[in-house]
Measured scan of single mutants.
Amino acid sequence: QWIQSKREDIVNQMTEACLNQSLDALLSRDLIMKEDYELVSTKPTRTSKVRQLLDTTDIQGEEFAKVIVQKLKDNKQMGLQ
């Protein structure tokens, strides 16, 4: 999976804004449970939030991952090649 192969780059480069947009999009599509949303959003640092989101992606699967990839594209953060 692309996200896993780029995990380190995503953790380093995903902005707080992109992270929040991803969470909002996942929530609005019922792809993330409120508990998982809280787990991510209550982490103390941006990098720990991104790591938690990516860990959740492993469990949730492809549809979940597609939303995150789309948000990275929207925010022009796909220089993660």
Rank of each mutant, 00 (worst) to 15 (best):
R46E: 10
T15F: 01
D30L: 04
M33K: 12
L39C: 07
L23A: 07
S5D: 15
G61N: 13
Q70L: 02
Y37K: 07
L27R: 11
R7A: 08
V40K: 06
D30V: 03
I68Y: 04
D30C: 08
K66Y: 01
I10D: 04
E62N: 01
M33A: 15
D74P: 05
S28V: 11
S48P: 03
K76L: 12
S5L: 10
I32S: 04
K43F: 06
L23T: 08
L54P: 05
I32C: 03
I3D: 13
I32A: 02
Q81H: 07
Q60K: 08
C18G: 07
L27N: 07
R7Q: 06
D36R: 02
M33N: 12
I59T: 10
S28F: 03
L23P: 06
N12V: 07
T57N: 03
T47R: 14
N20H: 15
S41K: 15
I68V: 12
Q70D: 10
V40R: 01
P44D: 07
L27M: 15
R29V: 03
D30I: 00
E35M: 02
A25G: 06
K76H: 13
R7E: 07
K49S: 04
E35F: 02
T15P: 06
D58V: 14
E16V: 09
K34Y: 05
T57G: 14
I32L: 13
G61D: 13
Q52D: 05
Q13G: 08
E35H: 14
V50G: 03
N75S: 13
F64V: 10
V69C: 11
L39K: 15
Q21L: 08
E8P: 05
V50D: 06
L53W: 04
Q77H: 12
L53S: 03
M33L: 14
D36P: 06
A17G: 11
L54Y: 01
I10S: 03
S22G: 05
T45R: 01
V40I: 15
I32F: 01
S22Q: 01
S28G: 08
A17S: 12
S22C: 13
K43P: 02
A65P: 05
T47K: 13
Q4M: 15
D36E: 12
K34A: 12
S28C: 09
F64A: 15
C18V: 14
D74R: 06
S41P: 04
S5G: 11
I32G: 02
D9P: 01
I3R: 00
V69M: 14
S28D: 08
D58E: 15
A17T: 15
E35S: 13
L26I: 00
D36Q: 15
I10W: 00
K71G: 09
K66F: 00
E38F: 10
L31I: 00
Q60H: 11
S48T: 10
Q21E: 12
D9V: 11
R7H: 03
V50E: 05
I10Y: 01
A17K: 13
S22K: 00
L19P: 09
N12A: 15
S48A: 14
Y37C: 05
E63T: 08
P44G: 08
R46F: 06
A25K: 02
M33F: 04
T45D: 14
W2T: 04
D74S: 08
E35R: 13
D24M: 02
R7Y: 05
W2K: 07
E38S: 07
R51G: 07
R7L: 05
K49G: 07
